[in-house]
Design a protein around this nucleic acid. Structure first.
Length: 554
RNA sequence: GCGCCUGUAGCUCAGCUGGAUAGAGCAACGGACUUCUAAUCCGUAGGUCCUUGGUUCGAAUCCAAGCAGGCGUGCCA
Protein backbone atom coordinates (compact mmCIF):
# COMPACT_ATOMS: atom_id res chain seq x y z
CA UNK A 1 0.00 0.00 0.00
CA UNK A 2 2.85 2.27 0.89
CA UNK A 3 4.35 1.81 -2.54
CA UNK A 4 1.00 2.39 -4.21
CA UNK A 5 0.78 5.76 -2.55
CA UNK A 6 4.34 6.67 -3.44
CA UNK A 7 3.56 5.80 -7.07
CA UNK A 8 0.35 7.78 -6.91
CA UNK A 9 2.21 10.78 -5.55
CA UNK A 10 4.99 10.66 -8.10
CA UNK A 11 2.43 10.55 -10.89
CA UNK A 12 0.67 13.47 -9.30
CA UNK A 13 3.91 15.43 -9.13
CA UNK A 14 4.47 14.71 -12.80
CA UNK A 15 0.99 15.99 -13.59
CA UNK A 16 1.63 19.16 -11.63
CA UNK A 17 4.87 19.77 -13.50
CA UNK A 18 3.23 19.08 -16.85
CA UNK A 19 0.43 21.46 -16.12
CA UNK A 20 2.90 24.07 -14.95
CA UNK A 21 1.42 24.23 -11.50
CA UNK A 22 4.86 23.75 -10.02
CA UNK A 23 8.10 24.97 -11.47
CA UNK A 24 10.04 21.95 -12.71
CA UNK A 25 12.61 20.95 -10.09
CA UNK A 26 14.29 17.79 -8.94
CA UNK A 27 11.97 16.07 -6.51
CA UNK A 28 13.50 14.35 -3.54
CA UNK A 29 12.37 10.79 -2.93
CA UNK A 30 8.80 10.68 -1.75
CA UNK A 31 8.26 9.02 1.59
CA UNK A 32 5.01 7.72 2.93
CA UNK A 33 4.65 6.44 6.46
CA UNK A 34 1.96 5.27 8.81
CA UNK A 35 1.31 7.88 11.50
CA UNK A 36 1.01 6.81 15.11
CA UNK A 37 -2.16 8.78 15.57
CA UNK A 38 -5.30 7.32 13.96
CA UNK A 39 -6.79 10.74 13.37
CA UNK A 40 -3.83 11.43 11.08
CA UNK A 41 -5.05 8.86 8.64
CA UNK A 42 -3.71 5.49 7.59
CA UNK A 43 -0.72 6.93 5.79
CA UNK A 44 0.87 10.34 5.59
CA UNK A 45 3.51 12.13 3.60
CA UNK A 46 5.62 15.18 4.34
CA UNK A 47 6.40 15.87 0.70
CA UNK A 48 4.73 19.28 0.68
CA UNK A 49 6.96 20.48 3.49
CA UNK A 50 10.06 19.15 1.80
CA UNK A 51 9.07 20.91 -1.41
CA UNK A 52 8.32 24.16 0.38
CA UNK A 53 11.91 25.32 0.45
CA UNK A 54 12.66 23.99 -3.02
CA UNK A 55 9.66 25.58 -4.71
CA UNK A 56 9.66 28.56 -2.38
CA UNK A 57 5.96 28.15 -1.74
CA UNK A 58 3.81 27.74 1.31
CA UNK A 59 3.66 24.02 2.21
CA UNK A 60 -0.09 24.04 2.73
CA UNK A 61 -0.57 25.58 -0.71
CA UNK A 62 1.63 22.90 -2.23
CA UNK A 63 -0.34 20.23 -0.40
CA UNK A 64 -3.60 21.66 -1.72
CA UNK A 65 -2.35 21.64 -5.31
CA UNK A 66 -1.14 18.08 -4.96
CA UNK A 67 -4.44 16.88 -3.56
CA UNK A 68 -6.37 18.61 -6.35
CA UNK A 69 -4.37 16.68 -8.92
CA UNK A 70 -4.40 13.22 -7.40
CA UNK A 71 -5.98 10.73 -9.76
CA UNK A 72 -7.16 7.89 -7.63
CA UNK A 73 -7.74 5.47 -10.50
CA UNK A 74 -8.09 2.40 -8.35
CA UNK A 75 -10.47 4.21 -6.07
CA UNK A 76 -8.71 3.35 -2.85
CA UNK A 77 -8.94 6.66 -1.05
CA UNK A 78 -11.74 7.51 1.34
CA UNK A 79 -10.43 11.02 1.85
CA UNK A 80 -7.24 13.05 1.81
CA UNK A 81 -6.59 15.82 4.29
CA UNK A 82 -4.03 18.50 4.92
CA UNK A 83 -2.99 18.74 8.54
CA UNK A 84 -0.57 20.57 10.76
CA UNK A 85 2.23 22.43 9.00
CA UNK A 86 1.54 20.64 5.70
CA UNK A 87 1.19 16.90 6.14
CA UNK A 88 -0.97 15.13 3.61
CA UNK A 89 -2.98 12.44 5.35
CA UNK A 90 -4.48 9.55 3.43
CA UNK A 91 -7.52 7.67 4.62
CA UNK A 92 -7.92 4.31 2.88
CA UNK A 93 -11.36 2.90 2.14
CA UNK A 94 -12.31 0.14 4.57
CA UNK A 95 -13.09 -2.23 1.73
CA UNK A 96 -9.53 -2.04 0.42
CA UNK A 97 -7.78 -3.57 3.40
CA UNK A 98 -8.80 -7.18 3.06
CA UNK A 99 -7.91 -7.19 -0.63
CA UNK A 100 -4.28 -6.71 0.35
CA UNK A 101 -4.30 -10.25 1.71
CA UNK A 102 -4.70 -11.74 -1.76
CA UNK A 103 -0.97 -11.36 -2.26
CA UNK A 104 -0.14 -13.13 0.98
CA UNK A 105 -2.26 -16.09 0.02
CA UNK A 106 -0.81 -16.22 -3.44
CA UNK A 107 2.85 -15.95 -2.47
CA UNK A 108 2.53 -17.94 0.72
CA UNK A 109 5.99 -18.95 1.91
CA UNK A 110 7.54 -16.53 -0.56
CA UNK A 111 5.63 -13.57 0.83
CA UNK A 112 8.17 -11.03 2.03
CA UNK A 113 10.71 -11.78 -0.65
CA UNK A 114 11.75 -9.11 -3.09
CA UNK A 115 14.07 -8.48 -5.99
CA UNK A 116 15.83 -5.37 -4.76
CA UNK A 117 19.13 -7.25 -4.88
CA UNK A 118 18.70 -7.83 -8.62
CA UNK A 119 20.89 -10.88 -8.40
CA UNK A 120 23.91 -8.91 -7.23
CA UNK A 121 26.51 -11.13 -5.67
CA UNK A 122 27.16 -10.56 -2.00
CA UNK A 123 29.50 -12.37 0.30
CA UNK A 124 28.92 -12.38 4.02
CA UNK A 125 32.00 -13.31 5.99
CA UNK A 126 31.45 -14.07 9.64
CA UNK A 127 32.60 -16.00 12.70
CA UNK A 128 36.12 -16.53 11.23
CA UNK A 129 37.43 -17.57 14.62
CA UNK A 130 40.96 -18.97 14.77
CA UNK A 131 40.95 -22.76 14.89
CA UNK A 132 42.87 -22.76 18.14
CA UNK A 133 39.96 -23.71 20.34
CA UNK A 134 36.25 -24.37 20.33
CA UNK A 135 33.77 -21.56 19.69
CA UNK A 136 32.53 -19.82 22.80
CA UNK A 137 29.47 -17.66 23.45
CA UNK A 138 31.31 -14.59 22.30
CA UNK A 139 31.32 -16.02 18.79
CA UNK A 140 27.67 -16.96 18.91
CA UNK A 141 26.18 -13.54 18.46
CA UNK A 142 28.24 -12.76 15.38
CA UNK A 143 27.38 -16.19 14.02
CA UNK A 144 23.64 -15.60 14.23
CA UNK A 145 23.80 -12.06 12.95
CA UNK A 146 25.91 -13.03 9.97
CA UNK A 147 23.68 -15.97 9.22
CA UNK A 148 20.45 -13.99 9.43
CA UNK A 149 21.81 -11.04 7.46
CA UNK A 150 22.67 -13.58 4.77
CA UNK A 151 19.16 -15.04 4.94
CA UNK A 152 17.57 -11.62 4.61
CA UNK A 153 19.74 -10.65 1.68
CA UNK A 154 18.93 -13.92 -0.02
CA UNK A 155 15.22 -13.26 0.43
CA UNK A 156 15.77 -9.83 -1.06
CA UNK A 157 17.07 -11.13 -4.33
CA UNK A 158 20.81 -11.10 -3.69
CA UNK A 159 22.97 -14.02 -4.59
CA UNK A 160 24.61 -14.72 -1.25
CA UNK A 161 27.64 -16.71 -0.18
CA UNK A 162 28.49 -17.38 3.46
CA UNK A 163 32.15 -17.58 4.20
CA UNK A 164 34.37 -18.44 7.14
CA UNK A 165 37.94 -17.19 7.02
CA UNK A 166 40.34 -19.54 8.74
CA UNK A 167 43.32 -17.74 10.23
CA UNK A 168 45.55 -20.75 10.04
CA UNK A 169 48.83 -19.16 9.05
CA UNK A 170 50.01 -17.10 11.98
CA UNK A 171 52.22 -17.60 14.95
CA UNK A 172 49.30 -18.79 17.01
CA UNK A 173 49.04 -21.96 14.97
CA UNK A 174 52.58 -22.88 15.81
CA UNK A 175 51.70 -22.20 19.39
CA UNK A 176 48.75 -24.53 19.13
CA UNK A 177 50.88 -27.35 17.80
CA UNK A 178 53.45 -26.78 20.50
CA UNK A 179 50.77 -26.84 23.17
CA UNK A 180 49.50 -30.20 22.01
CA UNK A 181 53.00 -31.57 21.66
CA UNK A 182 53.90 -30.65 25.24
CA UNK A 183 50.72 -32.21 26.57
CA UNK A 184 51.52 -35.28 24.54
CA UNK A 185 54.93 -35.54 26.12
CA UNK A 186 53.45 -34.99 29.53
CA UNK A 187 51.12 -37.88 28.89
CA UNK A 188 54.17 -39.99 28.20
CA UNK A 189 55.52 -39.11 31.60
CA UNK A 190 57.93 -36.35 30.66
CA UNK A 191 58.42 -33.53 33.13
CA UNK A 192 57.62 -30.40 31.14
CA UNK A 193 57.24 -26.87 32.36
CA UNK A 194 54.05 -26.00 30.46
CA UNK A 195 54.50 -22.41 29.20
CA UNK A 196 51.98 -19.70 30.04
CA UNK A 197 51.64 -18.62 26.43
CA UNK A 198 50.47 -22.07 25.44
CA UNK A 199 46.76 -22.84 25.31
CA UNK A 200 45.49 -23.85 28.69
CA UNK A 201 42.13 -25.41 27.86
CA UNK A 202 41.42 -29.04 28.58
CA UNK A 203 40.67 -29.69 24.91
CA UNK A 204 44.44 -29.52 24.32
CA UNK A 205 44.89 -32.58 26.52
CA UNK A 206 42.18 -34.37 24.60
CA UNK A 207 43.89 -33.67 21.31
CA UNK A 208 47.17 -34.91 22.76
CA UNK A 209 45.71 -38.18 23.90
CA UNK A 210 43.99 -38.64 20.54
CA UNK A 211 47.37 -38.44 18.86
CA UNK A 212 48.80 -40.78 21.44
CA UNK A 213 46.12 -43.34 20.73
CA UNK A 214 46.56 -42.94 17.00
CA UNK A 215 50.35 -42.79 16.69
CA UNK A 216 51.66 -44.18 19.95
CA UNK A 217 54.83 -42.73 21.43
CA UNK A 218 56.81 -42.44 18.22
CA UNK A 219 56.79 -38.62 18.16
CA UNK A 220 58.43 -38.42 21.53
CA UNK A 221 61.92 -38.87 20.17
CA UNK A 222 61.47 -36.66 17.10
CA UNK A 223 62.90 -33.17 16.90
CA UNK A 224 60.42 -30.53 18.08
CA UNK A 225 60.84 -28.23 15.06
CA UNK A 226 60.20 -31.10 12.69
CA UNK A 227 57.24 -32.69 14.36
CA UNK A 228 55.41 -29.60 15.43
CA UNK A 229 53.64 -29.02 12.13
CA UNK A 230 52.18 -32.49 12.34
CA UNK A 231 50.68 -31.61 15.70
CA UNK A 232 49.51 -28.26 14.40
CA UNK A 233 47.78 -29.79 11.41
CA UNK A 234 46.10 -32.46 13.42
CA UNK A 235 44.92 -30.03 16.10
CA UNK A 236 43.68 -27.39 13.65
CA UNK A 237 41.86 -29.96 11.57
CA UNK A 238 40.22 -31.53 14.54
CA UNK A 239 39.25 -28.21 16.12
CA UNK A 240 37.85 -26.94 12.84
CA UNK A 241 35.78 -30.09 12.51
CA UNK A 242 34.40 -29.40 15.98
CA UNK A 243 33.67 -25.79 15.08
CA UNK A 244 31.75 -26.90 12.01
CA UNK A 245 29.70 -29.33 14.06
CA UNK A 246 28.96 -26.75 16.72
CA UNK A 247 27.87 -24.25 14.11
CA UNK A 248 25.65 -26.76 12.43
CA UNK A 249 23.92 -27.54 15.72
CA UNK A 250 23.40 -23.80 15.98
CA UNK A 251 21.79 -23.72 12.55
CA UNK A 252 24.71 -22.02 10.82
CA UNK A 253 26.04 -23.56 7.64
CA UNK A 254 28.74 -22.02 5.45
CA UNK A 255 29.17 -22.18 1.70
CA UNK A 256 32.89 -21.77 1.93
CA UNK A 257 35.73 -22.12 4.41
CA UNK A 258 38.63 -20.06 3.14
CA UNK A 259 42.08 -20.81 4.45
CA UNK A 260 44.66 -18.11 4.98
CA UNK A 261 47.32 -20.63 4.07
CA UNK A 262 45.85 -20.99 0.59
CA UNK A 263 46.36 -17.28 0.19
CA UNK A 264 50.08 -17.67 0.77
CA UNK A 265 50.31 -20.80 -1.34
CA UNK A 266 48.93 -18.92 -4.33
CA UNK A 267 51.29 -16.01 -3.70
CA UNK A 268 48.23 -13.87 -3.03
CA UNK A 269 50.05 -11.70 -0.55
CA UNK A 270 53.08 -11.20 -2.79
CA UNK A 271 50.91 -10.27 -5.72
CA UNK A 272 48.98 -7.83 -3.64
CA UNK A 273 52.10 -6.13 -2.33
CA UNK A 274 53.41 -5.72 -5.86
CA UNK A 275 50.14 -4.18 -6.93
CA UNK A 276 50.19 -1.70 -4.07
CA UNK A 277 53.77 -0.85 -4.85
CA UNK A 278 52.97 -0.24 -8.50
CA UNK A 279 50.18 2.05 -7.45
CA UNK A 280 52.65 3.89 -5.22
CA UNK A 281 50.83 3.33 -1.97
CA UNK A 282 53.89 1.72 -0.42
CA UNK A 283 57.03 3.27 1.00
CA UNK A 284 60.02 1.71 2.64
CA UNK A 285 61.75 2.39 5.93
CA UNK A 286 64.69 0.06 6.34
CA UNK A 287 63.27 -3.39 5.79
CA UNK A 288 59.79 -2.30 6.72
CA UNK A 289 57.13 -1.64 4.10
CA UNK A 290 54.43 0.86 4.95
CA UNK A 291 51.06 1.23 3.28
CA UNK A 292 49.96 4.85 3.11
CA UNK A 293 46.44 4.27 4.42
CA UNK A 294 46.27 7.93 5.42
CA UNK A 295 45.61 8.60 1.72
CA UNK A 296 42.20 7.15 2.43
CA UNK A 297 41.46 8.80 5.74
CA UNK A 298 43.10 6.42 8.17
CA UNK A 299 44.73 8.18 11.09
CA UNK A 300 48.19 6.72 10.54
CA UNK A 301 49.98 4.59 7.98
CA UNK A 302 50.20 0.85 8.56
CA UNK A 303 52.96 -1.69 8.25
CA UNK A 304 52.41 -4.42 5.68
CA UNK A 305 55.81 -6.08 5.79
CA UNK A 306 57.63 -6.28 9.06
CA UNK A 307 61.23 -5.52 9.72
CA UNK A 308 61.92 -9.28 9.68
CA UNK A 309 60.49 -9.57 6.18
CA UNK A 310 57.21 -11.23 7.13
CA UNK A 311 53.96 -9.72 5.97
CA UNK A 312 51.53 -8.57 8.66
CA UNK A 313 48.09 -9.92 9.25
CA UNK A 314 46.76 -6.74 7.68
CA UNK A 315 48.60 -7.46 4.43
CA UNK A 316 47.06 -10.91 4.28
CA UNK A 317 43.66 -9.45 4.99
CA UNK A 318 43.86 -7.02 2.09
CA UNK A 319 45.00 -9.86 -0.15
CA UNK A 320 42.06 -11.86 1.11
CA UNK A 321 39.62 -9.07 0.28
CA UNK A 322 41.20 -8.69 -3.13
CA UNK A 323 40.61 -12.37 -3.61
CA UNK A 324 36.97 -11.94 -2.64
CA UNK A 325 36.42 -9.33 -5.32
CA UNK A 326 38.27 -11.42 -7.85
CA UNK A 327 35.80 -14.17 -7.17
CA UNK A 328 33.14 -11.82 -8.50
CA UNK A 329 31.42 -10.46 -5.43
CA UNK A 330 29.94 -7.02 -5.95
CA UNK A 331 29.63 -6.37 -2.26
CA UNK A 332 31.43 -7.87 0.67
CA UNK A 333 30.06 -7.79 4.19
CA UNK A 334 32.36 -8.42 7.14
CA UNK A 335 30.83 -9.19 10.50
CA UNK A 336 33.37 -8.31 13.18
CA UNK A 337 33.47 -8.11 16.92
CA UNK A 338 33.25 -4.51 18.05
CA UNK A 339 36.68 -4.79 19.64
CA UNK A 340 38.07 -4.75 16.10
CA UNK A 341 36.47 -1.42 15.26
CA UNK A 342 39.84 0.31 15.09
CA UNK A 343 40.56 -1.92 12.13
CA UNK A 344 37.73 -0.60 10.00
CA UNK A 345 39.34 2.52 8.47
CA UNK A 346 42.43 0.65 7.32
CA UNK A 347 40.33 -2.07 5.72
CA UNK A 348 38.44 0.58 3.80
CA UNK A 349 41.78 2.04 2.81
CA UNK A 350 42.80 -1.40 1.62
CA UNK A 351 39.90 -1.96 -0.69
CA UNK A 352 40.01 1.58 -2.03
CA UNK A 353 43.65 1.12 -2.91
CA UNK A 354 42.49 -1.87 -4.92
CA UNK A 355 40.27 0.50 -6.86
CA UNK A 356 37.04 -0.49 -5.15
CA UNK A 357 34.47 1.96 -3.97
CA UNK A 358 33.76 2.24 -0.27
CA UNK A 359 30.28 0.88 -0.90
CA UNK A 360 31.76 -2.44 -1.99
CA UNK A 361 32.52 -3.19 1.64
CA UNK A 362 30.18 -3.11 4.58
CA UNK A 363 31.42 -3.86 8.08
CA UNK A 364 28.87 -4.88 10.67
CA UNK A 365 30.25 -4.50 14.16
CA UNK A 366 28.79 -6.79 16.79
CA UNK A 367 29.09 -5.74 20.40
CA UNK A 368 30.38 -8.17 22.94
CA UNK A 369 28.03 -10.35 24.91
CA UNK A 370 27.72 -10.18 28.65
CA UNK A 371 27.12 -13.74 29.77
CA UNK A 372 25.13 -14.10 32.99
CA UNK A 373 23.54 -16.80 35.03
CA UNK A 374 20.70 -15.76 37.26
CA UNK A 375 21.79 -12.14 37.06
CA UNK A 376 25.41 -12.88 37.99
CA UNK A 377 28.19 -12.42 35.43
CA UNK A 378 30.10 -15.52 34.39
CA UNK A 379 33.81 -14.87 34.33
CA UNK A 380 35.50 -15.97 31.15
CA UNK A 381 39.11 -16.11 30.16
CA UNK A 382 40.12 -17.61 26.83
CA UNK A 383 43.75 -17.70 27.84
CA UNK A 384 43.09 -19.67 30.98
CA UNK A 385 40.80 -21.94 29.04
CA UNK A 386 37.82 -20.98 31.17
CA UNK A 387 34.91 -20.21 28.93
CA UNK A 388 31.41 -21.33 28.17
CA UNK A 389 31.36 -22.87 24.74
CA UNK A 390 28.77 -22.31 22.07
CA UNK A 391 27.99 -26.00 22.23
CA UNK A 392 27.24 -25.82 25.95
CA UNK A 393 24.89 -22.90 25.44
CA UNK A 394 23.01 -24.60 22.62
CA UNK A 395 22.75 -27.81 24.63
CA UNK A 396 21.47 -25.96 27.66
CA UNK A 397 18.98 -23.47 26.24
CA UNK A 398 18.20 -24.86 22.81
CA UNK A 399 18.93 -23.51 19.36
CA UNK A 400 15.76 -21.47 18.98
CA UNK A 401 16.02 -19.63 22.27
CA UNK A 402 19.73 -19.00 21.82
CA UNK A 403 19.38 -17.59 18.33
CA UNK A 404 16.35 -15.49 19.07
CA UNK A 405 17.89 -13.92 22.14
CA UNK A 406 20.96 -12.90 20.19
CA UNK A 407 18.69 -11.12 17.71
CA UNK A 408 16.87 -9.14 20.33
CA UNK A 409 19.11 -6.09 20.20
CA UNK A 410 20.72 -3.90 17.60
CA UNK A 411 24.12 -5.48 16.83
CA UNK A 412 25.72 -2.27 17.93
CA UNK A 413 24.41 -2.38 21.46
CA UNK A 414 25.63 -4.46 24.34
CA UNK A 415 23.68 -7.59 25.07
CA UNK A 416 23.08 -9.32 28.34
CA UNK A 417 22.65 -13.03 27.79
CA UNK A 418 21.34 -14.65 30.94
CA UNK A 419 21.36 -18.43 30.66
CA UNK A 420 18.59 -18.81 33.24
CA UNK A 421 16.29 -16.35 31.47
CA UNK A 422 16.99 -17.65 27.99
CA UNK A 423 16.34 -21.19 29.17
CA UNK A 424 13.14 -20.29 30.97
CA UNK A 425 9.97 -21.26 29.18
CA UNK A 426 7.97 -18.33 30.40
CA UNK A 427 6.69 -14.91 29.53
CA UNK A 428 10.17 -13.54 30.25
CA UNK A 429 11.32 -15.18 27.08
CA UNK A 430 10.22 -13.47 23.87
CA UNK A 431 10.98 -16.41 21.63
CA UNK A 432 8.17 -18.45 23.14
CA UNK A 433 5.76 -15.55 22.91
CA UNK A 434 6.11 -15.54 19.14
CA UNK A 435 6.29 -19.29 18.73
CA UNK A 436 3.22 -19.64 20.92
CA UNK A 437 1.28 -17.34 18.62
CA UNK A 438 2.20 -19.57 15.72
CA UNK A 439 1.31 -22.76 17.58
CA UNK A 440 -1.97 -21.23 18.60
CA UNK A 441 -2.82 -20.38 15.00
CA UNK A 442 -2.04 -23.94 13.98
CA UNK A 443 -4.29 -25.14 16.76
CA UNK A 444 -7.15 -22.99 15.49
CA UNK A 445 -6.68 -24.46 12.03
CA UNK A 446 -6.77 -28.00 13.40
CA UNK A 447 -9.93 -27.29 15.34
CA UNK A 448 -11.57 -25.70 12.32
CA UNK A 449 -10.83 -28.76 10.21
CA UNK A 450 -12.14 -31.05 12.95
CA UNK A 451 -15.37 -29.10 12.90
CA UNK A 452 -15.78 -29.61 9.20
CA UNK A 453 -14.36 -26.38 7.79
CA UNK A 454 -11.84 -26.30 5.00
CA UNK A 455 -9.05 -23.79 5.37
CA UNK A 456 -10.01 -20.99 2.99
CA UNK A 457 -7.93 -19.17 0.41
CA UNK A 458 -8.48 -15.58 -0.57
CA UNK A 459 -11.10 -16.40 -3.18
CA UNK A 460 -13.15 -18.43 -0.71
CA UNK A 461 -13.89 -15.54 1.59
CA UNK A 462 -15.95 -12.41 1.65
CA UNK A 463 -13.34 -9.76 2.47
CA UNK A 464 -15.88 -7.22 3.62
CA UNK A 465 -16.48 -9.33 6.73
CA UNK A 466 -13.07 -8.34 7.99
CA UNK A 467 -14.17 -4.97 9.19
CA UNK A 468 -13.03 -4.54 12.79
CA UNK A 469 -10.45 -1.84 13.54
CA UNK A 470 -8.11 -4.45 15.01
CA UNK A 471 -8.46 -6.46 11.81
CA UNK A 472 -7.49 -3.43 9.75
CA UNK A 473 -4.47 -2.91 11.98
CA UNK A 474 -3.36 -6.49 11.61
CA UNK A 475 -3.72 -6.32 7.84
CA UNK A 476 -1.78 -3.08 7.81
CA UNK A 477 1.03 -4.81 9.70
CA UNK A 478 0.96 -7.79 7.35
CA UNK A 479 1.08 -5.46 4.38
CA UNK A 480 4.19 -3.82 5.79
CA UNK A 481 6.15 -7.07 6.04
CA UNK A 482 7.87 -6.96 2.62
CA UNK A 483 9.02 -3.37 3.21
CA UNK A 484 10.32 -4.40 6.58
CA UNK A 485 12.47 -7.12 5.05
CA UNK A 486 13.76 -4.70 2.43
CA UNK A 487 14.70 -2.15 5.06
CA UNK A 488 16.29 -4.82 7.19
CA UNK A 489 18.32 -6.02 4.20
CA UNK A 490 19.49 -2.54 3.22
CA UNK A 491 20.52 -1.65 6.76
CA UNK A 492 21.88 -5.08 7.68
CA UNK A 493 19.71 -5.04 10.80
CA UNK A 494 18.09 -8.36 11.64
CA UNK A 495 16.73 -7.15 14.97
CA UNK A 496 14.00 -5.26 13.15
CA UNK A 497 12.39 -8.58 12.37
CA UNK A 498 12.26 -9.74 15.98
CA UNK A 499 10.62 -6.48 17.00
CA UNK A 500 8.16 -6.71 14.16
CA UNK A 501 7.01 -10.25 14.82
CA UNK A 502 6.75 -9.51 18.51
CA UNK A 503 4.29 -6.74 17.65
CA UNK A 504 2.42 -8.92 15.21
CA UNK A 505 2.18 -11.78 17.71
CA UNK A 506 0.93 -9.31 20.28
CA UNK A 507 -1.74 -8.01 17.90
CA UNK A 508 -2.80 -11.55 17.20
CA UNK A 509 -2.95 -12.63 20.87
CA UNK A 510 -5.04 -9.59 21.63
CA UNK A 511 -7.35 -10.25 18.71
CA UNK A 512 -7.69 -13.87 19.74
CA UNK A 513 -8.69 -12.97 23.27
CA UNK A 514 -11.26 -10.48 22.13
CA UNK A 515 -12.83 -12.23 19.16
CA UNK A 516 -13.79 -15.78 18.30
CA UNK A 517 -12.37 -17.04 15.05
CA UNK A 518 -14.54 -20.13 14.81
CA UNK A 519 -18.21 -19.39 15.36
CA UNK A 520 -21.66 -20.48 14.17
CA UNK A 521 -21.47 -17.95 11.36
CA UNK A 522 -19.74 -19.99 8.64
CA UNK A 523 -19.00 -17.05 6.37
CA UNK A 524 -17.48 -14.98 9.18
CA UNK A 525 -15.53 -18.00 10.37
CA UNK A 526 -14.00 -18.41 6.94
CA UNK A 527 -13.03 -14.77 6.69
CA UNK A 528 -11.34 -14.87 10.08
CA UNK A 529 -9.69 -18.22 9.48
CA UNK A 530 -8.20 -16.69 6.39
CA UNK A 531 -6.90 -13.66 8.25
CA UNK A 532 -5.39 -15.83 10.94
CA UNK A 533 -3.85 -18.08 8.34
CA UNK A 534 -2.14 -15.04 6.83
CA UNK A 535 -0.73 -14.06 10.23
CA UNK A 536 0.62 -17.58 10.53
CA UNK A 537 2.31 -17.27 7.16
CA UNK A 538 4.10 -14.09 8.22
CA UNK A 539 5.23 -15.56 11.53
CA UNK A 540 6.47 -18.68 9.82
CA UNK A 541 8.33 -16.78 7.10
CA UNK A 542 9.88 -14.39 9.58
CA UNK A 543 10.97 -17.13 11.97
CA UNK A 544 12.38 -19.00 9.04
CA UNK A 545 14.53 -15.98 8.16
CA UNK A 546 15.78 -15.92 11.74
CA UNK A 547 16.59 -19.61 11.61
CA UNK A 548 14.14 -20.28 14.43
CA UNK A 549 11.56 -23.03 14.19
CA UNK A 550 7.84 -22.33 13.99
CA UNK A 551 6.29 -25.14 16.04
CA UNK A 552 2.76 -26.32 15.31
CA UNK A 553 2.15 -27.34 18.90
CA UNK A 554 3.55 -26.21 22.20
C1' G B 1 46.26 12.30 24.85
C1' C B 2 43.62 10.75 20.25
C1' G B 3 39.72 7.75 17.74
C1' C B 4 35.14 4.80 17.62
C1' C B 5 30.61 3.17 20.13
C1' U B 6 26.86 3.95 23.85
C1' G B 7 23.72 7.36 27.02
C1' U B 8 15.63 7.24 26.07
C1' A B 9 10.43 5.03 32.10
C1' G B 10 12.88 1.81 38.42
C1' C B 11 15.49 -2.34 34.95
C1' U B 12 16.51 -4.25 29.69
C1' C B 13 15.87 -1.88 25.18
C1' A B 14 13.00 -0.09 20.28
C1' G B 15 12.30 4.43 17.80
C1' C B 16 11.58 2.72 10.32
C1' U B 17 17.76 7.30 8.62
C1' G B 18 14.37 14.93 10.41
C1' G B 19 7.85 14.53 11.46
C1' A B 20 2.46 15.45 14.49
C1' U B 21 0.80 14.01 21.88
C1' A B 22 8.43 9.58 22.50
C1' G B 23 6.96 3.40 22.49
C1' A B 24 7.47 -2.10 24.08
C1' G B 25 8.87 -5.94 27.55
C1' C B 26 10.07 -6.79 32.65
C1' A B 27 9.25 -5.21 37.63
C1' A B 28 4.47 -2.79 40.68
C1' C B 29 -0.88 -2.65 41.35
C1' G B 30 -6.10 -4.35 39.87
C1' G B 31 -8.89 -7.72 36.77
C1' A B 32 -10.13 -12.14 32.77
C1' C B 33 -9.81 -19.50 31.89
C1' U B 34 -17.21 -24.70 31.76
C1' U B 35 -15.35 -21.41 25.01
C1' C B 36 -10.56 -21.87 19.05
C1' U B 37 -3.87 -23.43 23.56
C1' A B 38 -3.80 -18.59 30.25
C1' A B 39 3.77 -19.80 27.49
C1' U B 40 -2.27 -15.55 26.60
C1' C B 41 -5.20 -11.06 27.34
C1' C B 42 -7.40 -6.23 29.56
C1' G B 43 -6.65 -1.96 32.71
C1' U B 44 -3.62 1.57 36.03
C1' A B 45 1.01 3.92 36.86
C1' G B 46 5.73 5.44 35.15
C1' G B 47 9.92 10.69 31.04
C1' U B 48 14.74 17.15 31.96
C1' C B 49 15.26 11.35 25.45
C1' C B 50 23.00 12.81 29.79
C1' U B 51 23.97 18.61 29.73
C1' U B 52 24.47 23.25 27.00
C1' G B 53 24.37 25.69 22.54
C1' G B 54 23.51 25.54 16.98
C1' U B 55 21.05 24.19 12.08
C1' U B 56 14.89 24.81 10.44
C1' C B 57 8.52 25.13 9.59
C1' G B 58 9.85 20.81 13.06
C1' A B 59 15.44 17.50 16.63
C1' A B 60 15.58 11.58 20.82
C1' U B 61 17.39 11.62 15.58
C1' C B 62 21.93 16.24 12.11
C1' C B 63 26.33 19.70 13.86
C1' A B 64 29.72 21.70 17.98
C1' A B 65 31.42 21.59 22.96
C1' G B 66 31.17 19.25 27.62
C1' C B 67 29.92 15.01 31.18
C1' A B 68 29.61 9.56 32.12
C1' G B 69 30.52 4.37 30.72
C1' G B 70 32.60 0.67 27.18
C1' C B 71 36.24 -0.48 23.47
C1' G B 72 40.38 0.58 20.62
C1' U B 73 44.91 3.15 19.97
C1' G B 74 51.13 -3.43 18.06
C1' C B 75 56.09 -4.33 12.84
C1' C B 76 49.68 -9.55 17.69
C1' A B 77 45.93 -12.27 15.36
Amino acid sequence: MNKNLVDLLSKTMQTCFDKGIFEKKDVPSIEVEAPKENSHGDYATNIAMILASILKMNPRTIATRIIENIEDGDNILEKVEIAGPGFINFFIKDTIWATLLAEVDEKDDRYGESEIGKGKRVQVEFVSANPTGPLHVGHARGAVIGDVVANILQASGYSVSREYYINDAGNQMNNLGRSVLYRYRQLLGEEIDYPDECYQGHYINNLASEILTKDGDRHQSEVEEEVISLFTDYAAGSILEGIKNDLEAFGVVFDCFFSERELYKDDGVETLLRELQEKQYIYREGNTLWFRTTDFGDEKDRVVVRDNGEPTYFAADIAYHKNKYERGFDTVIDVWGADHHGYVPRMYAGIQALGKKKEALDVILVQLVNLLRGGKPIAMSTRAGEFVTLREVVDEVGKDAARYNFLLRRSNSHLDFDLELVKEQSNENPVYYVQYAHARICSIMRTAVERGHTIPGYHDVNPSLLSLPEEFNIIKAIDRFPELIEGSAKAGEPHRITFYINDLASAFHSYYNKNRVISDDAELTHARLFLVKCIGIILRNALHLLGVSAPERM
